[in-house]
Every structure is written in C-alpha cells, then in structure tokens.
Design a protein around this nucleic acid. Structure first.
Lengths: 216, 216
DNA sequence: CGATGCGCAAGAGCAGTGCTCTCGAATGTG
DNA sequence: CACATTCGAGAGCACTGCTCTTGCGCATCG
C-alpha cells in the first residue's frame, strides 16, 4: 500500500516537480486526501520516504554499473563508468535527482535514516580508490591540506575508507563533488544554449577529474 | 515601489525559502494581495525579477572582488579571489543563491533577460584566463575534445572570449562548474557532519582546480 | 450465532495559497 | 470644475496541507 502511494507520488514528481500535491496523489488513487495520512504522517514524511528511495535507487544503479565492469584493475575505466552511471540515472530520473541534490526545502531537515542510503554512491567511488591504491595506480597528490582540514579528512576516511590516505580521500571528495556539480549543472539547465554535445562534455570532465585524482 | 516589493520579498525569501507567498509579502507591506498584481503580473514574474537581481548582485560582487586585486598579473591569486567571492556571496545570500543555482521550479522557464545577467560571473573568470593566456601563465591542457564538443566550445568562446583557445575555454568551464558544485554542495547541506573546516576545504578545492586549469 | 473491536476510508472543516474581477477613492490634468 | 487615470480594497474561485469525527466492513472472540 505505501509502495503504491510512493509509486503514484513518483509519477507526480516526474511531471509536477518538487511541489508534490498530496490531494492529487490521493485523487489518482481514487481515495480522499485524508486517507493518505494513515500511511504517512505528513507530506514531508512522504517526501522523506521518496528521498531515501531515490538515494538507494541511485546507489544501486551505480553499484550495479561498477560490479558489471570486468576488468577490476582498470581503475580509470571504473571511475568513468561510475560517473556515467550517476549521470544516466539522473537523466532518467530528473525529479528524484533534484529531490536529493537540489536546493533543500526551507523547513526540511534530512533525518538520520537518509545518510546511510546517501553514502552508497560515494562509497563505490571510494572503493575504486581503495582498489586503485593497492594497485599503486593512484599517484600521490601534490596538494596541501590545512591542519584542520586534514583532521576532518582523516576522521572521515577513518569512518568510511580506513585504508585511504587523507590526501587521496580528499581528492576523492573533489571527484565526487565535481560529478555532482556537472550533473546538476546540466540537469538544472545551466548548459542550455551553450553546449549541445553533452555526452562528450561530461566524459571530457570525467577524464580531467580522473587526471586530477591521479587515476591514470 | 517595485523595489520595495522586491526588498520585502527578498526578506521573506531568506526565511521561508523558495516557496514565496505573495499574500505574506503583501501583508508585510500593509497591502492586500491583489494590489501586488499591479506591479507584477504573477508570482513567477516576481521570482524572475528576483532571479535577475540575484545574478546581478553575484556578478557585481565578483567583479568588485576581482577589480580590487592589485596584482593583475597574479592570475592564480585572482582565480582564488573569484572563487572565494562567489562562495562568500552565496553564504551571505543562501536563498538567492538557491534561487538561481538550485533545482528549477517545474513550470518555470528562464526568460532571455536572465542570460546576460547570468553571464557576468563566468565572464570574470574567463577574463582572468584571457589575461593569463596573454602572460602565458596558462599551460596548454593535455586533454582531448571530441569533435562535436570542440565545435560547441569554439562557438561559445567565439561569442564570449574570442581570444581563448577552445581547450583553455573548456578548462574554464570546468573551473566554473566546480566552483558552482562546491558551493552548492556545501550550501545544500551535503557537507554536514563530514567536514567542518569549510573555508580550508573550499580553498583546497580552488587550488586543485587552479592546478587543473594550469593557473600556476 | 451474535457482539465487540479494529482497520480503514470518507467527509466536513480550518487556515492558507495564487489569481481574477469589480468597485470606490484619490490624484493629477484639461 | 470635470474628467480620466491610477491605485488599492474586497469578494470570490479553486486549490493546498492537515485535523477531527463519523461510519462502514471485516475478523476475532464469548
């Protein structure tokens, strides 16, 4: 039942965007709006469920794409596949992407449940770096981390990818942020009337970032 | 009068986020909601005006920051200043930043008026590259542009920065996208509970991107 | 077999929204 | 002074999220 509600809500999300109407969802299900409150305490609750689903769907798509790569030792190739998987999922589910990576709604605060689902995709990226580090394909980065920043990076990698040097971990966050930035830039319309060869452009960016990270 | 309405709307935007209430704005001005329709044809119209203002405010802040740099030949320094100016403006005006760089509202299509205002900030960045190119501080990039992408880049630089080689122009777009991505990532809460030294982290990213672009 | 309880949905209602339309008051112009 | 134009108020429509009460139907007990 809740899955059916979420399915209909997802359909509405795809057409109407983030301003999801509970009444419209109920109408589509032949119910009255108050009936939905048996399954979701509020509209925000429904949105939270959709957000967690979206994080998991993206994470699953990326995990599947990386797992399908035969040559596990081709770390640069795996990174490119990962980036493309993120973008493909975003292009296929723009509303859900905007839900999790777009501007947050004012009063809304993401519950702790979301973080584990949100971590799946960056986890895959860090996994590639961990594997690549073992194969010494990842070069040592040339940049300097300020002390406070180094402490943050060390603490974060301790919790997520203990075997990664903080400098490599930091470069991984840059890669993740740029993938997010590039997809958002395209999806939110900032590329309109400027760049048409979007597949090529995204790949170009991935290669540049791979170089920056040291995935040669 | 329209400026006063926009001022009140901006104040509401800062507290209530993107779902701006015309009635609340009118209430704050001691007027009734229908009176606002003399000055703005619709709520979207008011939002469009705010968007253009936001683009111009950001552009002006960045232009001012770059113009204040004494050593015009320190292209890497000017790039860092530019990035910090973008972030500072975004942190000071989060709602307006989200308005122009966040997920677009579903039915909304940006009018042509916005593009000239939107171009001001990337123009400053490209200006630094143009200057830096004359001083041969910008190294030749190592990456390859696919033919269709090269055509896009060439056309775009013809319209914006004719003296820039397409490869350098392309690197400039990467820099701009990463600045946007890094600011959005921080502002939209994706850094929460992970990185606290945010000034340091942003500067670290800027240095890495400066290296990537070749601003040594 | 009948009564009780519970899960579920419907309906009314409240406060709020964007937007349209009409009407009256004030203002400045000929 | 008379006119026209601008401006804001008010009512109203359709919509929203959400609460509360009501009642239907079904299953489980005594």
């Amino acid at each position: 039942m809740v899955t059916e509600i979420k399915a209909v809500a997802r359909r509405h999300l795809a057409t109407d965007g983030a301003n999801l109407s509970l009444r419209a969802v109920a109408r589509d299900m032949g119910m009255v709006s108050s009936a939905l409150y048996r399954y979701f305490a509020s509209r925000d609750d429904l949105l939270t469920a959709l957000i967690i689903d979206a994080y998991n769907a993206l994470g699953a798509a990326v995990e599947k794409a990386d797992a399908a790569v035969g040559e596990r030792g081709d770390f640069r190739g795996r990174f490119l596949i990962l980036g493309r998987a993120v973008r493909q999922w975003a292009l296929a589910n723009p509303a859900e992407y905007a839900l999790i990576f777009g501007s947050p709604v004012p009063g809304y605060a993401a519950p702790a449940n979301t973080v584990v689902a949100a971590q799946r995709t960056p986890d895959v990226l860090l996994g590639i770096l961990v594997d690549g580090l073992a194969g010494i394909a990842v070069r040592a980065p040339a940049a300097e981390l300020a002390p406070a920043l180094r402490a943050d990076m060390t603490a974060a990698r301790d919790a997520i990818a203990p075997s990664l040097p903080p400098d490599v971990f930091a470069l991984g966050t840059i890669a993740w942020i740029h993938i997010f930035g590039a997809v958002s830039f395209e999806l939110f319309g900032q590329l309109n009337n400027v760049i048409d060869a979007r597949d090529d452009y995204f790949d170009y960016q991935l290669r540049q970032i791979a170089d920056l990270v040291g995935l040669g």
